[in-house]
Computed example of a mutant assay.
Amino acid sequence: MPRTGLSPALIARLSKRADQHKYDHGHALILSGGPGRGGAARLAARAALRVGAGLVTLGCPPEALAENAAQVTAIMLRPLDGSAGLEEALEDPRLNAICMGPGLGIATVSRNHVRVALASRRPVVLDADALTSFADDPRAFFALLHSNAVLTPHMGEFARVFPDLAKALQADPRESRLEVRRAAVTQAAARCGATVLLKGEVTLIADPSGHLAELHLTGKAAAPWLATAGSGDVLAGLVTGLLARGFSPFQAAETGAWLHGAAGRHLGAGLIAEDLPEALPAIFAQLGV
């Protein structure tokens, strides 16, 4: 339930052994939107690399390749020509975790990308536009999902995919709606068959079996400067990087959320999203990783 720190087991999983090489830590694929829309995906990719994924590739439309090449170095690039290009890329079994949504764009192509990624049965993080693209047909979305998927909505995105559950939250008159939020997230995970991470002052994580974790960013643990553009994209990248490293969806969501909050507290006032991945080495040092 409420977490003040990571469990020793999860901290141990963050460590790397000296005899391992980069492919032992997975290869994450982060999908990007077109020209002028790559910033969110680059944030996610940077976070996935910083959290320990062995390799990270940013997949983007061919026309956005030069723009992204000017912005990244350790992150690899691959041109993807629509959902057919994604399908071709996923023929490589070493790509073992996918992130889509940040800056992807809300269009038919987004839906097709989601279908291809989920059909591969690989661990996948679905955020932002990947969720919103199915707002008019959540049932079709749920039919595609599986237990290796992690949804990372804020409250607005949660309402688009689970409108009835969000309506119950909005209708509750109590000042503290934590019990109702717990019930809503648990029901959402059971309904869609995937892990759901609902972002907020109290972040809630539920999986289809009913496991629930809470991260309270309140009181001394508060990190109010996380309320900034791109912060959620970093969180999506953290979860993706952990999935690439072999964490289960629930473990990746819980650990990623905790690291995100810890980075926010470490940086404090004035942080911007670009700072968050760069705070991870200090957080790992504090954990003894």
Results as ranks from 00 to 15, higher is better:
residue 3 R to M: 14
residue 3 R to D: 08
residue 10 L to K: 01
residue 11 I to V: 15
residue 20 Q to F: 10
residue 23 Y to A: 10
residue 23 Y to E: 04
residue 26 G to V: 00
residue 30 I to D: 09
residue 35 P to H: 03
residue 44 A to H: 02
residue 51 V to T: 14
residue 52 G to L: 01
residue 54 G to A: 10
residue 56 V to A: 07
residue 60 C to V: 15
residue 64 A to Q: 06
residue 67 E to Q: 15
residue 68 N to V: 12
residue 71 Q to W: 13
residue 79 P to T: 07
residue 81 D to I: 00
residue 86 L to A: 03
residue 87 E to K: 14
residue 93 P to Y: 01
residue 112 N to Y: 00
residue 115 R to A: 15
residue 115 R to D: 07
residue 116 V to H: 01
residue 117 A to Y: 05
residue 118 L to S: 04
residue 118 L to A: 05
residue 123 P to S: 08
residue 127 D to G: 10
residue 134 F to Q: 04
residue 134 F to A: 02
residue 135 A to Q: 12
residue 139 R to H: 13
residue 139 R to K: 11
residue 147 S to M: 12
residue 148 N to C: 05
residue 149 A to T: 13
residue 153 P to I: 07
residue 154 H to L: 06
residue 162 F to M: 04
residue 168 A to K: 15
residue 181 R to C: 03
residue 184 A to P: 02
residue 184 A to L: 09
residue 193 G to F: 06
residue 193 G to M: 01
residue 196 V to D: 01
residue 201 E to G: 12
residue 202 V to E: 13
residue 205 I to F: 11
residue 216 H to F: 15
residue 218 T to N: 10
residue 233 D to E: 09
residue 234 V to C: 07
residue 237 G to T: 02
residue 238 L to G: 05
residue 239 V to K: 06
residue 252 A to E: 11
residue 254 E to R: 10
residue 256 G to L: 13
residue 258 W to G: 05
residue 260 H to N: 10
residue 260 H to C: 10
residue 271 L to G: 09
residue 273 A to N: 11
residue 279 A to G: 08
residue 286 Q to F: 08
